[in-house]
Every structure is written in structure tokens, then in C-alpha cells.
């Protein structure tokens, strides 16, 4: 395989990895857009989603699509519950204390799940035949295509919700300015609650897809992808939906390229390094608008 071939193959690897980051990053960025909270528990919501999908497939013997939907609904409700119980009482507290609460929620989800499902990794049953398609010298398999496909569908639905529905309008208004939105008659609490629901559902979808694709889930699986998705969101410009997707895909491709052409051990360092460089030249991310701070 010559250089171009390997490059294209790494691009395929990177985009399929990046679409998972993108799904998680969307939730991060939506939540950040509205209440300016870095929801560190988001990666663990993704983990819970994976487990719910796992139990739906193994215990309730569902096929993959219903399992995905069940997981999205249940995890979406969990996201609302977390918001209601842990973040809402702190709406007017300093932002840092909500952040610490988010870390607390993250620890709680990780170790409560570890207690209930044990730290041993679970293996997802093979729900989709994984056929490898050889397109010329390149390998793409069915699951990779499924991940990219489902990510695309979910993003279209999300864009529709945000751009065309009343709820979406309210979300955009609230992310612009919560107080003014409230004065205009928008029930901010409800909008925030729905935002958590949608964001968590997307994370759950990512969790189930990862479970199917990599075949293995464990209670601490959310830590690194959560962090990476946060990086992706910031890279694209936090609070901006297309930014999260762009950031996720770019991050996935960077990781694949660094592992492929340099060394896997520097993969994460390179990802962070590029993030920092981007921030230094464009402090609000790739798609972010540079806002001058006013007095």
C-alpha cells in the first residue's frame, strides 16, 4: 500500500471515529450553548446509554433499531432527571459550583454503575452482520457505514428540530440570552430540560453505536470519549452545532493520521496540541465568532 492509499484508508478510519465524537460533542455543545455549563457528566451519560442498549438487546432481546430508540428515550429522561435534581437548584449559583456538581454527577454515574454492573467489560452481541466492503484497495465495513449513516440521520433530525420547530426557536432564543427569552414568554426551565433530553439521547445513540462497533462496554468507557468530545466541541466553537460536528470529524481524522503516520502514543498529545494552536489563533474555535467583550 503506498502513501495515498494509506492516507485514504486513514481518512475513512478517522471519519468513522470522528462521527462518534461528533454525536457526543453535539450534546456537550447544546447544553453549553444554553446554560454555559461544561457538563462533565456527559461522557457518563453516553456510557449509561450504551448499557441500556446492551440490556435492551440481551435481556429484552430487541433488535438494534428498537434498542437504539429505547436507549435514547430512557437516557434522554435520565438526562432530564439529572438536570432537574443536580443542576436546576444551582441555576443562580456561581458557574464553578455547577461545574463541580457536574464532576460529582460524573463520579456518581461511573461508580454507581460500577457497583451495579461490575467493572468487568460486557460484550455486545453481534446484532448486525459486519461485512467488509473492499472498494478498490480500501476497506469499509458495514458497521462503519451504519455509524456514519445514523450520525447523519440524527444530525438532520436535530437540525430540523433546532431550525424549524417552536422548541428549536425557543432553544436558540434561550442560548442567545436566557433572561430576555424568559421576558418574551419562553419557559426557560422547560427549554433547558428538553435540551438535556435531546443532548443525552444523542449521547446514548453514540453509546449504543460504539457498543455495537467495538463490541465492548465498561463503566469507565465514557471518560476519554467525553473529554475528546469536549475538545471537539471547543475546537469547532463551543455552543455552535455545526462546529461540534466539524470539530468531531477533524479530531477523529487527526487521531487517525497521527496514529497512522507518527505514533499512537502521541495521538492524544497531538489532538490537544492542535486544539491549543487553533485556540491561540482563533480563540473562539474554528466556527466561532470572535466577540469583543464589552464593558
Amino acid at each position: 500500500m503506498d502513501f495515498t492509499h494509506q492516507f485514504v484508508q486513514q481518512l475513512i478510519n478517522g471519519v468513522s471515529l470522528g462521527s462518534i465524537y461528533a454525536l457526543i460533542a453535539l450534546g456537550y455543545t447544546m447544553i453549553y450553548g444554553i446554560i454555559k455549563l461544561i457538563n462533565f457528566a456527559h461522557g457518563d451519560i453516553y456510557m449509561v446509554g450504551a448499557y441500556i442498549g446492551f440490556f435492551a438487546v440481551t435481556r429484552a432481546e430487541m433488535s438494534i433499531v428498537p434498542a437504539l430508540l429505547v436507549s435514547m428515550v430512557v437516557t434522554g429522561l435520565l438526562g432530564m432527571l439529572v438536570e432537574r435534581l443536580a443542576y436546576k437548584p444551582l441555576r443562580h449559583a456561581p458557574r464553578i459550583s455547577i461545574l463541580i456538581t457536574a464532576i460529582g454527577v460524573s463520579f456518581f454515574l461511573e461508580y454507581a454503575s460500577m457497583y451495579f454492573v461490575t467493572p468487568t467489560p460486557r460484550t455486545f452481541p453481534n446484532v448486525i452482520d459486519n461485512i467488509a466492503y473492499n472498494i478498490g484497495p480500501f476497506v469499509v465495513n458495514g458497521q462503519q457505514m451504519m455509524i456514519m449513516g445514523i450520525t447523519l440521520i440524527l444530525m438532520v433530525i436535530l437540525t430540523y428540530i433546532v431550525q424549524k420547530t417552536k422548541l428549536g426557536k425557543a432553544m436558540r432564543a434561550a442560548s442567545f440570552d436566557v433572561e430576555t427569552a424568559q421576558l418574551m414568554g419562553i419557559n426557560a426551565d422547560r427549554v433547558i430540560s428538553y435540551t438535556f433530553c435531546i443532548g443525552s439521547a444523542l449521547a446514548a445513540a453514540a453509546g449504543v453505536l460504539v457498543g455495537v462497533y467495538y463490541n465492548s462496554i465498561d463503566p469507565l468507557m465514557g471518560i476519554m470519549p467525553g473529554l475528546k468530545a469536549f475538545v471537539a466541541a471547543v475546537l469547532g466553537g463551543i455552543g455552535i452545532l455545526p462546529g461540534a460536528v466539524t470539530g468531531g470529524i477533524i479530531l477523529g481524522v487527526i487521531e487517525a493520521m497521527v496514529s497512522g503516520f507518527l505514533s499512537s502514543t502521541f495521538r492524544d498529545a497531538a489532538a490537544f496540541g492542535i486544539l491549543i494552536l487553533v485556540l491561540l489563533f482563533k480563540p473562539s474555535g474554528l466556527l466561532g465568532k470572535n466577540r469583543r467583550e464589552k464593558v
Binding site: 494509506q6 484508508q9 486513514q10 478510519n13 478517522g14 471515529l17 460504539v210 467495538y214 468507557m221 470519549p225 487521531e255 487517525a256 493520521m257 497521527v258 496514529s259 497512522g260 499512537s264 495521538r267
Partner: peptide, 8 residues
């Protein structure tokens, strides 16, 4: 989770 890059 993902080893494909290095495996390529």
C-alpha cells in the same frame, strides 16, 4: 477503543 489507524 479504536485501533484501526495503527492496524492500517
Amino acid at each position: 477503543q479504536d485501533f484501526k489507524a495503527a492496524l492500517t
